[in-house]
Simulated scan of single mutants.
Amino acid sequence: MKEARDTEYQFDEETGEEIEVEVRPTKHIKQSRTDPESGLFHKGEKERCFAYSHQTFCDRHGFVVRFKTVPGNVHDSVSFFDVYPVLSEKFKGKIQNLVLDAGYVTPAICRAVLQAGQKLYVPYKRPMTKKGFFRKYDYVYDEAYDCYICPQIKLLEYVTTNRNGYREYKSDPKDCESCPFLSRCTQSGNHQKTVTRHIWEAYKEEVNELRYTPEWKEIYPQRKETIERVFADSKEQHNLRYTRLRGLMKNEHQVSLIFAFHNLKRMARWTQ
């Protein structure tokens, strides 16, 4: 997958001149020739392959209550919104807690769940920072003055909000030039540190605080007994690990049968 950046020229009616306009980057996505509806799946050390993913929700007893089949190159945090709004509306007032893995810890998801009056329990996600550099939590956010404070007690003031919804806070290059921790802070040529903060970051911080509550220690470990068990049984016993079908609709129909078998088996065990 590559990004391409180009420029275009538009005619300005007022001045009669051509204006150079930068075109937003476009992504070139690899597509299967035999199954164009699939997506290139790659996660960790797994081999890249064209596949489908299944955004799945289950209750605390392990019964699958909703799912959606998507191409394998769609991130879980994106396909989440294909299922959650429908699920939340159908069981309105009945869903109290939601347990998700680290891939779902985004400001948008945290905001959606908290605004629905539900609690979101997620694991700790290690900051994605280069080795030897300061972590983001080393820069303290001052909510009253809307600024960040670096480890050397210097201010990073708000500058702008980018098109992705992140507020940018930048340091004064004069403060950074003589800083003894410059090599651990930034590699920018102008000696300026930039810290970003999403406009919905407060929702994410509120969710992260739930990790220190007794409820988190009681509820989150149940995930391995519910949704993880759903996928384990479906892959090992019902051929969810591989597909011999082509097309999004055919795969969704197949998974409907697999999860129906799973729910019937769990119901049968309850009657024994």
Rank of each mutant, 00 (worst) to 15 (best):
K90L: 10
A268G: 01
E209N: 06
S171V: 00
C176N: 08
P221H: 09
T194D: 07
D172T: 02
E17C: 08
F133T: 09
L257G: 08
Q31N: 13
R211N: 01
R33V: 14
T34D: 15
H28L: 03
I227L: 12
A232S: 15
P25A: 00
D146F: 13
L182K: 01
H28M: 01
V105G: 05
R48T: 06
E209M: 03
E13G: 00
Y242R: 14
I95T: 03
Q152L: 01
V159P: 01
R111P: 02
E201S: 13
R167C: 13
N263W: 01
E17G: 04
V64A: 01
K154A: 03
L100I: 10
E8D: 07
R48S: 07
L120W: 06
L245D: 04
R167Y: 10
E218H: 06
L257Y: 10
H75S: 05
R184Q: 13
T69V: 09
R5D: 02
K90D: 08
Y203A: 14
K217Q: 13
V23S: 13
D233E: 15
V86K: 10
L156S: 01
R24K: 11
P151E: 13
V255Y: 08
V70C: 04
Y139W: 14
E218R: 14
E209S: 09
R184T: 02
A112V: 02
K68G: 03
L245A: 04
H75W: 07
P85H: 03
G16S: 07
P25H: 01
L210R: 10
T160R: 15
V105I: 12
T161H: 01
K2C: 06
I29Y: 04
Q10G: 02
